[in-house]
Structures are given as structure tokens and as C-alpha cells.
Simulated assay, not measured.
Amino acid sequence: MRALTVVPSRPGSLRVADVPDPEPGPGDLLVQGLALGVCGTDKEIARGSYGRPPEGTDRLVLGHESLGQVRQAPPGSRFQPGDLVAGVVRRPDPVPCGACARGEFDMCRNGRYTERGIKQRHGYGSELWTVEEDYAVPVDARLERSGMLMEPTTVVAKAWEQVERVGARAWFAPRRALVTGAGPIGLLAALLGVQRGLDVHVLDRLTTGPKPRLAEALGATYHADPADQVAERLEPDVVIEATGAGTVVFDVMRHTAAYGIVCLTGVSAAGRTLAVDAGAVNREIVLENDVVLGSVNANLRHYHQAADALAKADSDWLDGLITRRVPLARAPEAFTGGEDDVKVVVTLTGEG
């Protein structure tokens, strides 16, 4: 079969290669790969920034934003041939640490977890793949074209869960949310905010193209003014930060409502400096009981939260997030793109 592979830490090694068909274990599903979402993590691995192959091989099958169709299930399985599924990315560490032992492997304390398509496990970027039944999540049958959005939706499902858990330390009834960044993570965060009945605002620098239309189609308000101006004007109760841009991060931290919560989901590049009035930021956070927290990855609970959110969403709107589809034979084209790209997807079926 064909698979999208890379040699981690070797820039320029991304290619579609022939690899052996997978052999399902006793508790595994055999899945026909349908589509694969491409994100910044995949691009960083392709550039050689990080990633680790499985033991005994130098190449890694990429891909963690999966969508497939069950071809074969073990006896007594809750899945049937033809079901749509997504595969969970992370597996708990073998020790396990306290978090992993309790199913909270997204919060692993010792770093010995593994991840499909990222760290020591082959990913889902192949024509066929296997997954342990316990790490397979059903995808609504209506989402055959957009179900690969499951994994990025888990990221924001966890972010919203963390916001709500922090808010519950006292009376918390948020009304207004600001999402910074209108990429897939930002727009999916906005979707989950709208589903919660909040007044959602989305901030991005583009004024044309699909991003403003997608935000407005949700019922959110779109902004392209500087982050400090927008945040100061809105005084949001909740901010989901999805840009990783240092200036945006500190601008929104300073302009939340009292008892505001900022959840950082964007990863900033290292090596950049920024002049910040640290005293003013500290004063604001302390005197208003504000909270800033980081959130990444997801556990099984968040996958099921994401599945519920996608099942309730408008399928045409979800399809609109996918602005380009590239066949597996030309998969490296998905790793370059323009400003109008929101989500680029590699299709794993067909002859292309």
C-alpha cells in the first residue's frame, strides 16, 4: 500500500512510499483510510524540527488527523464494516504516570507517551491502517467529507473543558468569548463557543477570503483590527488564543473582563523577543483574579466531546473549512499553501 512518510530530523525527506499492509492484532480494527488533515505539526515534522519513528525503522508514516472506514472488526466489536472512525493520537506511557494511569494521558507527567504520526508510532497517512478498538472513535455518517476534523476539534473541546473547570472555582457565567486566529483550531473553537450559546467574536488579520465568511456563517462577529483594540473594546470573559503570536497573547491577556480566562492553544516560535510591561500584566491578572492556562492534545473524553460537537454542527459549514483536497500521490503539495487555505486535506482513496 501507499503511505505518506518522512525521516524525522531530515528536511526534504517527505515522500509517498510503498509500505507493507498492516496486520491487525486480536483487538484491532482494520480501516480503509479515507482522508487525512494536514496541520502545522505535520509541516514541522516534514521540515525536520521533530518527530520520532518507531523502533527499528528510520521512516515515520505521518498523519494524526484521521478519517477512515472500518473494513474488518474483531468478533463482538461495537464497530461494523462500513462504519466511519477516527483514531486517537496519543497513547499512555508504559510506566504509567499518575495521569496516564487515570486515563488523562493528554496530561502525561513523564513524557514517555507515544503518538500516532508524531512520536514512535506510525500515523494514519496510509491507504490502510489499524487501530485498537479502544482508541477508535465513531464518526457521524454525515461527515464522510469532513470527519478528519475530529482531532483538531478534540483540541478545542479540551480547551473549553479546561476553561469551564477553571471558571467553576467560583461563580462563572461567561457571556462573551474572543477567539484569536481563524485557522481550523480557531474556527472550531468558535463553533464550540456558539454551541454554548456565547456571543462569539473571531479575530484574524485577513479581511477577504473564506475566513470572514466562515466566522460570520456561524453567527460569530469577525474582526481584523489590532488585537489590543479588539480585546479592549470587547472585554471578553473567555479568550481562546489560537495564533501563538506573542503580541496577540499579551494584548488579550491585558484586556479581559474581571475574572477573565485566557486559554492558550497556539504554540509560539522560540527565539523571538517582545517588550512587555510585566508589572502591568501581573497587576491585571492578580487584581482581577484572571487566569492564563495552556492546553494541548486530548484524551478519550475529549474525543467523545468532539464527536458530539461535530454531529450537532452544520455539515455544509464543516465542509467549508476544507479549502483544498490533494490526492495521496501528490500529498507533498498539501504542505505548501496560500493565505486562503483554512484546512488542507489529503485524500487516501482513488488513483490520484
Rank of each mutant, 00 (worst) to 15 (best):
E127L: 04
E127Q: 14
E127G: 09
E127V: 07
E127D: 04
E127H: 09
L128W: 06
L128P: 02
W129N: 09
W129R: 07
W129D: 05
W129K: 05
T130E: 01
T130M: 04
T130W: 02
T130G: 04
T130P: 06
V131W: 00
V131D: 00
V131E: 05
E133D: 03
E133L: 07
E133H: 06
D134C: 11
D134G: 14
D134M: 09
Y135F: 15
Y135V: 07
Y135M: 13
Y135S: 13
A136P: 09
V137M: 02
V137N: 09
V137T: 09
V137G: 05
V137K: 04
P138H: 12
P138W: 12
P138C: 11
P138I: 12
P138S: 09
P138T: 11
V139H: 06
V139C: 04
V139D: 07
D140C: 08
D140H: 13
D140F: 08
A141C: 08
A141T: 15
A141Q: 15
R142E: 00
R142C: 01
L143E: 06
L143P: 00
L143I: 02
E144L: 14
E144H: 15
E144N: 11
R145L: 10
R145F: 11
R145W: 12
S146W: 02
S146Q: 02
S146I: 01
S146L: 03
S146T: 04
G147Y: 01
G147C: 01
M148I: 03
M148P: 02
M148Y: 07
M148G: 01
M148D: 05
L149Q: 00
L149G: 01
L149T: 08
M150H: 13
M150F: 11
E151M: 11
E151W: 12
E151N: 13
E151P: 06
P152V: 06
P152C: 03
P152R: 00
T153R: 11
T154H: 07
T154W: 02
T154K: 01
V155T: 12
V155E: 07
V156P: 08
V156R: 00
V156G: 05
V156D: 10
A157R: 00
A157M: 08
A157S: 14
A157Y: 05
K158I: 07
K158Q: 12
A159P: 03
W160P: 12
W160K: 04
W160Q: 08
E161L: 10
Q162K: 15
Q162F: 03
V163A: 13
V163L: 09
E164R: 13
E164W: 14
E164G: 01
E164F: 15
R165N: 09
R165H: 11
R165K: 15
V166Q: 14
V166F: 14
V166I: 15
G167W: 00
G167F: 01
G167Y: 01
A168L: 05
A168M: 07
R169S: 06
R169W: 10
R169Q: 06
R169A: 05
